[in-house]
Nucleic acid binder design. Structure first.
Length: 484
RNA sequence: GGCGAAGUGGCCGAGUGGUUAGGCAGAGGUCUGCAAAACCUUCUACAGCGGUUCGAAUCCGCUCUUCGCCUCCA
């Protein structure tokens, strides 16, 4: 079966073939770095991480660009308010560069914890000012943009397809309910800024043919996407809230310069909600990832995210996360049992599982169904281990390979290691394992002497630090609980 | 007001015309010194009202409700 992707532009699933055989170009809107990442960022970048991993698994050479927005765009609307990064710099009593560098590092720390692979190129907007200016110059030369008082605006009426992504094609009708105050120097209320003249005291500013100022918000993605991926790219991803105006503006300014389709497949991931309401920095209900990681294994967060489809809203709650933690433990436990079992005779066919997993992923990256396949396999393995002497060497190898490919390489939710202690370095992890073995030996001795008070105390206290002891018919085993 | 998405069992969450989603939680059982884990059995569904159809949670219409966007936002 071929890969089908839901294309937001067409509002339908379409068969995916890259423009250039074997090579996939993908651009995903990156974060604006003026604060720590939250769960919403996690959902977005985990989702696209799996997209990239699946494309690579299918044999494509994937070139993945994810920008860093470090130009301070405005806190308010397109024409007023304070620069977000400058504002944060003022609050933290430092300068904008330190703010953007600090939160960029913070962002990657969090993404690393979530097992999100780094993009091939992570271009910063401030490092591509010349490219953005060049794009504005081309737009002016082509008659799609005009300058007024050092500001440059894109003329929406010069691009007939404006609004085709979001469905906002009737510009006149839009004005009636619009909350943005119209600005008189624009030729049309829907026109958007490509370059803005810096006001007094504005810190992040650059020289340009029109004024000392800074680029409009939508410009960087077009300029950097074209620079690194070409004028037409295969996939552009981002959050749904960016369909309008951000992505519609990108399309307008890009296509009116090149005359070519800007993006072949638009992919939009849905929001994280808290108690049914959107999570957002400005709404002050955002769940900071660093805080979350103190309580919950980051891979549980990843698993929780992938248990719903990327185009569905994901409602966050503590109980939902806990349910995910228990579920992921089940998969890890199966993987552990499989690795520890002695070879037996039971066999089963991996092919149906492989097929169902592939079909799910090929159907617009249906990770919830893909995970359900892992649970079905988990049950099959456990049943075989419970009701027979063990699984044959061949079936075991096939199962392990499948779990590794699907769970570790593609979904990134199972780490390949047998047992790990938190995120400690390997050395200390080895020592801890040995210490646990000592405690288990002592407990076994107590049990042999029917000293259950002592043996239970050892078990309970180990459980209290997240180490769970299990007396199975194959002997004593232990595993780490993911907590939550 | 305009554009768009959605309402599934106690909770989370897939499915899109006829056959078990899956996870978590609950009940009973097997196993165990007791647990845990695992396995077996099991309960609770498709917002409401019409329509199309041999048959609809799935298609169509209406109603109600929720959410997102139209301001920066993953």
């Amino acid at each position: 079966m071929s890969l089908y992707i839901y294309n937001s532009l067409k509002r339908a699933k379409e068969k995916f073939e890259p423009l250039h055989p074997g090579i996939v170009s993908i651009y995903v809107c990156g974060p604006t770095v003026y604060g720590h990442a939250h769960l919403g960022h996690a959902k977005s970048y985990v989702s696209f991480d799996v997209v990239v991993r699946w494309l690579r698994h299918k044999g494509y050479h994937v070139k993945y660009i994810q920008n860093i927005t470090d130009v301070g765009h405005l806190t308010d609307d397109a024409d007023a308010g304070e620069d977000k990064i400058s504002k944060q710099a003022r609050l933290e009593k430092t300068d904008p560069m330190e703010i953007s560098q600090f939160y960029t590092r913070s962002f990657y720390e969090d993404m690393d914890q979530l097992n999100v692979l780094r993009p091939n190129i992570a271009p910063a907007a401030t490092a591509h000012i010349p490219e953005q200016i060049a794009l504005v110059e081309r737009l002016i030369a082509a008659g799609h943009a005009y300058e007024v008082n050092g500001n440059v605006y894109f003329s929406v009426q010069s691009f007939p397809g404006y609004g085709k992504l979001s469905g906002r094609t009737d510009q006149e009708a839009l004005q009636s309910g619009a909350r943005v105050e119209t600005r008189s120097e624009k030729h049309h209320p829907s026109d958007f800024a490509l370059w803005k003249k810096a006001e007094e005291g504005h810190l992040m500013k650059w020289n340009s043919p029109w004024s000392i100022g800074y680029p409009g918000w939508h410009l960087e993605c077009s300029a950097m996407s074209m620079k690194y991926l070409g004028e037409t790219i295969d996939i552009h991803g981002g959050g749904m809230e960016n369909k309008f105006p951000h992505h519609d503006c990108e399309i307008a300014q890009s296509e009116s310069v090149t005359g070519k389709p800007y993006v072949r497949f638009w992919m939009h991931n849905n929001m994280v909600t808290v108690n049914g309401v959107k999570m957002g920095k400005s709404l002050k209900n955002s769940v900071n990832l660093k805080d979350l990681f103190k309580e919950i294994d980051p891979l549980v967060i990843r698993f929780f995210i992938l248990q719903s489809h990327y185009r569905s809203q994901l409602d966050y709650s503590e109980s939902a996360i806990k349910a995910s933690a228990t579920g992921l433990d089940k998969l890890r436990e199966t993987q552990r049992r499989l690795q520890e079992q002695k070879h037996g005779t039971a066999t089963f066919d991996l092919e149906p599982f492989l097929q169902r997993f592939t079909d799910a992923m090929d159907d617009d990256f249906n990770t919830p169904v893909a995970i359900a396949v892992l649970f079905d396999l988990s049950k099959a393995i456990n049943t075989a281990l419970d009701h027979s002497e063990g699984i044959s060497k061949e079936s075991r190898q096939e199962s392990e390979a499948f779990l590794h490919t699907a769970g570790t390489d593609i979904l990134g939710i199972l780490n390949g290691n047998k047992q790990t202690i938190g995120r400690d370095p390997i050395q200390s992890s080895h020592k801890l394992e040995k210490i646990i073995d000592i405690l288990i030996d002592m407990r076994s001795e107590a049990r042999n002497n029917k000293n259950f008070a002592l043996s239970d105390k050892i078990r309970d206290r180990l459980l209290a630090v997240g180490i769970e002891i299990k007396d199975t018919k194959e002997g004593v085993s232990w595993s780490e609980k993911s907590g939550a």
